[in-house]
Design a protein around this nucleic acid. Structure first.
Length: 468
RNA sequence: UCCUCGAUAGCUCAAUGGUGGAGCAACCGGCUGUUAACCGGUAGGUUGUAGGUUCGAGUCCUACUCGGGGAGCCA
């Protein structure tokens, strides 16, 4: 085929630059999504992975392999040469009239995906094939687009992307149960004189784990680069069995210097709006699909957020608001304990009806590194609650005063020698700084309306489940 | 980890304690521009696993495994 008359294109090219391909000869390769065959002609819906929408291919009995094509099963791969023409059918603006169809690969008859709807539970059991479905194609393209949006947002502000370690020697980053990392023979681990496992003979000469947060590490780079962020995998060995928790998930953790809790919340709001707008602009077909088939209120919800200021309420104010509604709750609210899921949902879904920051929590229910407020009772912590998902961001201004941090560590029973490098940050020009953690999967859930975290991670790892 | 619901054909689901079915998919055939195409036919089952009750269990009981929903923990 000569280049002049036959150019190899993607379905994305055809949809994005239709005019330059209409009534032209083109060549493309892809996988069959459906075949509808008649006696003398047939239709193939083909998808080449480049674009959410399929392309309809029309083929007629003049093709030498006409009979063979009609018997192909879903997911067989084809290379097609033909002319892109306006379609008489109502459901697509154009179609490819095939002049030659080469069968690149036949799919076996027991291909488990069908043309009809499958349950998400079933598709999870074939996680290696589910990206070939509309829903998961949309989820994972949006995930990719949003990951890029996050880098774009921070990079354009001059933030430095820091790769914090996956393996950590800190045994108390304070964010949850950890997975142990070891090279010891678990059947016969070396023991010390007390009969305990002797980790000094392990690979690193000490106990090590998978990270539960890059925060403490990234704070060190914050004191060098001013504004930094991490974006990487995080591991929690919590036995959580919910639709919002995974043992392996991705987290974004910005950390900003010369900044307080309000700067932190402003950054979080600006970031959320940026990535929502970016997803709507750069994956419009996928987002429309979610709005039509997954959550009919999605567009209204997202546009409402883009056009409104996020709510702000202190923990103390929130407790006062919720106490008036105590008859509605299974667990009544009172000052001093953390808000229950039902309280958080009521705040964001019923009272504010939009994302809301809750700030200044009691010091006893938050981490040691959060900055103590002047009331000596609360810390400069903030959670961002969003309708439908709940907590999506948790952050704080960090305690920059060495003596206060030391006394807080004492209250938490933490040994200073385990955190000497962290304390050094306060000794050597430590300034006020703040940051937050954003659960990447929870953002994707929020942006797509998908309701289970297992359906926004390619191969989910959860308690009792590590397939593929 | 706790509460709760569930597991039947490849998929989605039926079946009063008494002979396990349907739609879709697969396969065979038909077909008028179809679009979750349509029409006819064929094949497909150790009812999640292990016990128990009963003349008889997909159905009732117990345990376990896996999955859904909710809670705790959190991002």
């Amino acid at each position: 085929m000569r280049r002049k008359t036959m150019q190899s294109v993607t379905i994305r090219d055809i949809y994005k630059e239709t005019n330059s391909f209409l009534n032209q000869k083109v060549e493309l390769s892809g996988w069959i999504r459906t075949v509808r065959s008649s006696k003398a002609f047939g239709f193939i819906e083909i998808n080449d992975g480049s674009f959410f929408n399929n392309l309809q291919v029309v083929y007629e009995e003049s093709l030498p392999n006409f009979m063979e094509i009609g018997k192909l099963t879903i997911s067989s791969a084809l290379r097609i040469q033909g002319t892109l023409v306006p379609s008489p059918g109502a459901k697509q603006p154009f179609e490819l009239k095939a002049e030659n169809i080469e069968i690149l690969a036949q799919s076996a008859a027991d291909y488990p995906l069908q043309k009809k709807r499958h349950t998400f539970e079933y598709l999870r059991s074939i996680a290696h094939l589910r990206p070939r479905t509309n829903t998961f194609a949309a989820v994972f393209r949006v995930r990719s687009v949003v990951a890029y949006a996050i880098h774009k947002f921070f990079q354009e502000k001059g933030y430095v992307y820091v790769h914090t370690p996956i393996i950590t020697g800190s045994d108390a980053e304070g964010a949850g149960e950890m997975f142990r990392v070891t090279a010891l023979d678990m059947a016969k681990p070396p023991q010390d004189e007390a009969g305990d496992v002797d980790f000094t003979r392990d690979f690193f000469g000490r106990e090590t784990s998978l990270t539960v947060s890059g925060q403490l590490n990234v704070e060190t780079y914050c004191m060098a680069f001013r504004n930094v962020y991490t974006f990487g995998p995080t591991f929690r060995a919590e036995n959580s069995n919910t639709a919002r928790h995974a043992a392996e998930f991705w987290m974004i953790e910005p950390e900003i210097a010369f900044a307080d809790l309000h700067d932190n919340m402003n950054l979080a709001e600006e970031m959320m709006k940026f990535i929502i707008q970016y997803a709507l602009d750069n994956a419009p077909e996928e987002m429309a699909f979610f709005n039509n088939f997954v959550d009919k209120t999605l567009f209204d919800r997202l546009k409402n957020i883009l056009n409104s200021e996020f709510g702000h309420v202190t923990y103390t104010e929130a407790v006062e608001m919720l106490e008036k509604e105590n008859d509605k709750f299974e667990y009544p609210v009172h000052w001093g304990t953390d808000l229950q899921t039902e309280h958080e949902r009521f705040l964001t879904e019923k009272i504010f009806k939009k994302p809301v920051f809750v700030s200044d929590y009691p010091k006893d229910i938050k981490a040691f590194y959060m900055r103590l407020n002047d009331d000596n009772k609360t810390v400069a912590a903030m959670d961002l609650l969003v309708p439908g998902v709940g907590e999506i961001i948790g952050g704080s201004q960090r305690e920059e005063r060495l003596e206060v941090l030391q006394s807080r560590m004492k209250e938490f029973g933490l040994k200073e020698e385990d955190y000497d490098w962290y304390l050094d940050l306060r000794k050597y020009g430590g300034v006020k700084h703040a940051g937050y953690g954003l659960g990447f999967e929870r953002v994707i859930m929020y942006l797509t309306g998908m309701s289970n975290i297992r359906d926004v991670i390619s191969f989910p790892r959860t308690a009792n489940s590590c397939e593929f």
